[in-house]
Computed example of a mutant assay.
Amino acid sequence: MSGLLSSPIFRTVLLLTASNVFMTFAWYGHLKNLSDRPWVIAALVSWGIALFEYLLQVPGNRIGATALSLPQLKMLQEAIALTVFVPFAVFYMKQPVKLDFLWAGLCIMGALYFMFRGATPGA
């Protein structure tokens, strides 16, 4: 288990997932929480939240780049973004669950398959 926790891919997924939580709130949380405020206030609050996103995303990408190619790292980021966004949309923003979430997830899984097939660890 300690080998998994110290692997660059595991640490990358952990950091990028946490980063995406902040990113999602920075990008969309103001639509719920600050809709009655001027857009400039929402932008400044979002910018403040985004600082924490970058403090996790930059090291996550740097660690990930030691074990993944740039296209693999980007596709992993997209999969994590969708994984974070769907629960945010449904539970926090109270959006209806749609079958389109499943189809989008399947498309991302297909993209991950093509990006990672035949990949050798550390390449």
Rank of each mutant, 00 (worst) to 15 (best):
M1D: 08
S2C: 02
S2W: 10
L4M: 06
L5A: 09
S6Q: 12
S7K: 00
P8G: 10
F10L: 00
T12C: 07
T12K: 04
V13R: 01
L14G: 08
A18K: 06
S19Y: 10
S19I: 10
S19K: 10
N20Y: 09
N20D: 11
V21T: 09
F22N: 03
T24A: 06
F25Y: 14
F25V: 15
W27N: 15
W27F: 15
W27C: 13
Y28Q: 13
Y28P: 09
G29S: 08
H30L: 09
H30R: 11
L31F: 14
L31A: 14
L34T: 07
L34M: 02
S35N: 08
S35V: 10
S35Y: 07
R37C: 11
R37H: 12
P38A: 04
P38H: 01
V40F: 12
I41F: 07
A42I: 00
A43C: 02
A43S: 08
L44M: 10
V45N: 06
V45D: 08
V45P: 05
G48C: 08
A50W: 12
A50D: 12
L55I: 14
L56D: 09
V58G: 13
V58S: 14
R62M: 14
A67M: 04
L70A: 12
L73V: 08
L73W: 03
M75Q: 07
L76E: 08
L76V: 06
E78W: 05
A79R: 01
A81R: 00
L82Q: 01
T83D: 04
V84M: 04
V84F: 06
F88E: 07
A89I: 03
F91G: 03
Y92D: 10
Y92K: 00
M93Y: 09
K94V: 05
K94Q: 12
K94C: 02
K94W: 07
Q95N: 13
P96G: 09
P96R: 06
V97F: 12
V97A: 11
V97R: 07
V97C: 05
V97W: 14
V97H: 08
L99Y: 13
L102N: 06
G105N: 05
L106D: 03
C107E: 03
I108H: 07
M109F: 14
A111P: 04
Y113P: 01
Y113R: 00
M115H: 05
R117C: 11
G118V: 01
A119H: 06
G122S: 04
G122W: 04
A123F: 06
